[in-house]
Amino acid sequence: MIIFGASGHAKVIIDIVKSTGQKSIDFILDDDRSIKSIADFEVKHEFEESMVSQDLVIAVGNNITRKKLANQITNNFCEALKHRTAVVSEDVVIEEGSVIMPNAIINSSVVIGKHCIINSGAVIEHDCELQDFVHISPGSTVTGNVKIGEGTQIGAGATVIPGVQIGRWATIGAGAVIINDIPDFAVVVGNPGKVIKFNKFENE
Rank of each mutant, 00 (worst) to 15 (best):
I106T: 08
S89C: 14
G113M: 04
E125V: 06
A104F: 03
I124P: 01
D127V: 07
E95P: 00
A122Y: 01
H126A: 03
D91Y: 01
M101R: 10
I112Q: 13
G113C: 05
K82R: 06
C128I: 06
H126I: 04
I106S: 07
M101T: 08
H83T: 03
I118F: 07
A104V: 01
V111R: 15
I118P: 12
L130S: 09
H115N: 14
I124V: 13
V111W: 11
L130G: 08
A86G: 09
L130Q: 10
G121S: 03
I94D: 07
I124Y: 01
Q131R: 15
E95R: 05
G97Y: 10
E125P: 04
S120T: 14
F77A: 11
V87I: 13
S109R: 11
I105E: 08
G97C: 08
G97F: 03
C78M: 12
H83P: 01
I117L: 12
M101W: 14
N107W: 02
I117Y: 04
M101C: 14
H115Q: 15
A122Q: 12
I94P: 10
S98T: 13
V87Y: 11
D127I: 07
C78V: 14
R84P: 00
V123K: 07
E125W: 01
H115K: 07
K82H: 03
L130R: 14
E96K: 15
G113Q: 06
V87F: 06
A104Y: 02
P102M: 03
R84Y: 07
V111L: 13
F77D: 07
A122W: 04
I100S: 05
V92I: 10
E90R: 10
C78L: 13
G121V: 02
N119A: 12
E125M: 02
G121Y: 00
V111C: 12
A104R: 08
C116T: 12
R84W: 00
T85R: 04
P102D: 05
G121L: 00
E129N: 11
P102Y: 00
V87R: 07
S109D: 13
A80C: 00
K82Q: 04
I112R: 03
V123F: 02
V123I: 14
I100N: 02
V88F: 04
H115W: 07
Q131N: 15
I118K: 09
N119W: 10
S89R: 09
E125I: 05
S89F: 13
E95T: 00
S109H: 12
L130M: 08
R84L: 04
E79H: 14
M101I: 10
C128S: 14
E79G: 15
S108I: 10
E79W: 08
A122I: 04
S120W: 01
T85P: 02
K114Y: 03
M101F: 15
C116W: 04
L130D: 09
C116G: 08
V110T: 12
I118G: 13
A80H: 00
V87Q: 10
Q131Y: 14
D127E: 13
K114L: 13
